[in-house]
Write a protein that binds this DNA or RNA. Structure first.
Length: 498
RNA sequence: GGCGCGUUGGUGUAACUGGUUAACACGCCGCCCUCUCAAGGCGGAGAGCACGGGUUCGAGUCCCGUACGCGCUACCA
């Protein structure tokens, strides 16, 4: 069999959203799995709704996810002449005709309205369908405005075997004579895809299920053009919590992949999550696992493990903690806590730089120190941005962080004695020659005993004094992470909060 | 309206060509650990497989119907 060639063909009418990203991913996995070619083609024939900013967003999303393409990006708008030529070839071979019906101006809303109304009665055959060629040519030559429509056969049916949905059949008479070329000569989607897919030698079309019906029209065009029909695999849709198809326009930035990049997702984790939306590995060995490396995904990917029903993607913009699908957040957390620290650091660095917390020494003399700090923090973080927000007290010098009111009330103000105990503890710490987990623990416990208070009181008080928070890693690790001088400073300062 | 597709716990999925009390992950709840938890360990609740009928010794798995959901139905893509 000849080499597999697939393409991802987004239209730049919005940023790359998670549905599109999954389509891209599945195409990419399929190509990589079979040593095929993955092509990126931007379908920008709808000039009014396309924009270069959106193209840029799509490119960025692809790059972030590591979905590298072997050819492209191609722009469909660069091939309009070929699209027109194909339409005229169909006209010449009798597979298309000119329709001189005046164009109806209507808004999107009106179109939608009319679809449901007009479709109630069976469609009539277009009166221009069988206009003699000579008359058609004469009218066209006279400059009479017209569209070119595909002449759908009135007999028989189209069929294809979809790799996901199985045998698909449709009566030709139920397919309308679709417009190939608009009045202004602009080629339309169904013609463009077919011409481009032929031109690019696409062997497998992997795309969203919303194109399942279009496929019949496209197959008719392939056949009229005398070209072989590729294989098709339609993917189930990704739905919003409201169960509608995900869309940038309706659901906003929260469904765009760049939002996941900006909010601290690790591309590998997001990819992993996406791969499991509508697909599951075959191998029994992998059945009860959720975390798969990119290489494992490639190795085990197959179209026949894609299932047919739509998947709900749970996001919740209003919820600060669970702003997106909880499983995605969990998965990102798994990557954060298990990846090599050396690989985590550059990712965290980006976040720290954004928050103006990065210090070049973190990549020099303080590298070991920062790695150790990341090591104790990452167990409970789920996004990279957590390092810059929740992790801020661990990174920043001085007292440039906020004290959580509830934490202060719970751990500091609870016992007024802490106003003197914590500075006294600071004095103890200041005398330590070595500032380690062991030495700080010994010092703190000895001090607690000497003062006749529970170690927990000092520990919890210290946590809030040093981090402003009520939760965090084991306290003796925190002392070491914050370091002797900052620890002493913050313990003394805590007295002013009580 | 027509056509198409789908329907396993709240969510994502599993269950070999029909065969034990439907499995895993996320989430939820509880307990333990403990200096805290958004960490870790252990355990639990939650679907009888949309509903109804049929085929079969036996069906989530096959057939029919119904309901519901989604998609498409543009001189959008």
């Amino acid at each position: 069999m000849s080499q597999i060639r697939v393409r991802f063909a987004p239209s730049p009418t919005g940023y790359l959203h998670v549905g599109g990203a999954r389509t891209a991913l599945f195409n990419w996995l399929f190509a990589r799995r079979h040593g095929g070619v993955f092509i990126l083609r931007i379908e920008d024939t709808d000039l009014q709704r396309s924009s270069t900013a959106m193209v840029e967003g799509i490119l960025q999303g692809m790059e972030w996810l590591g979905l590298d393409y072997d050819e492209g990006p191609f722009f469909q708008s660069d091939y309009v002449e070929q699209h027109r030529a194909a339409a005229h070839r169909l006209l010449d071979t009798g597979w298309a005709y000119r329709d001189f019906t005046p164009k109806a101006e209507r808004t999107d809303a009106e179109v939608k309205q009319q679809i449901s109304e007009a479709a109630r009665q069976p469609a009539l055959l277009n009166p221009w369908r069988d206009t003699p060629r000579a008359e058609s040519d004469a009218r066209a030559a006279a400059g009479e405005p017209h569209v070119i429509r595909f002449k759908v056969p009135q007999e028989g049916k189209t069929s294809f075997v979809d790799s996901v949905f199985g045998l698909q059949e449709r009566e030709c008479r139920e397919i309308e004579d679709l417009v190939l070329l608009r009045t202004d000569g602009h080629p339309l989607y169904n013609l463009c895809v077919v011409v481009d897919d032929i031109e690019m030698g696409i062997t497998h079309v992997i795309r969203g299920q919303d194109h399942l019906m279009n496929t019949h029209k496209q197959i008719l065009i392939y056949q009229a053009l005398g070209k072989p029909v590729p294989m098709f695999a339609h993917l189930p849709l990704i739905l919003a919590p409201s169960k509608e198809k995900l869309s940038k326009r309706k659901h906003g930035e929260i469904v765009s992949v760049t939002a996941y990049r900006d909010r601290g997702f690790i591309p590998e984790a997001f990819l992993n999550f996406l791969a499991l939306l509508g697909w599951a590995p075959d191998s029994a060995e992998f059945r009860d696992r959720e975390i798969f490396s990119r290489a494992e995904l490639i190795e085990h990917f197959s179209l026949d493990r894609i299932h047919k029903s739509n998947a709900v993607f749970n996001f919740n913009e209003g919820d600060e903690r669970n702003w997106t699908d909880q499983k995605a957040l969990w998965m990102n957390g798994e990557y954060i806590k298990s990846m090599p620290l050396e690989e985590l650091l550059p990712l965290v660095r980006v976040e720290l730089e954004k928050a103006c917390l990065w210090n070049d020494e973190f990549d020099g003399v303080r590298r070991a120190e920062i790695l150790r700090t990341l090591g104790i923090l990452r167990d409970r973080y789920r996004t990279l941005t957590d390092f810059a927000t929740l992790g801020r007290p661990y990174i920043v010098d001085g007292l440039d962080f906020t004290y959580d009111e509830a934490a202060v009330a719970k751990n500091l103000r609870k016992d007024p004695a802490l106003a003197t105990l914590l500075p006294a503890l600071a004095d103890q710490f200041a005398t330590l020659d070595e500032f380690t987990h062991e030495s700080t623990e010994a010092a703190l416990r000895a001090f607690a005993e000497q003062q006749g208070v529970k170690a927990g009181l000092l520990i919890n008080g210290s946590r809030t004094a040093l981090t402003g928070q009520s939760v965090g890693p084991g306290m003796f690790d925190v002392f070491v992470a914050i370091g002797q001088s900052r620890t002493v400073e913050r313990l003394r300062h805590a007295a002013t909060l009580i």
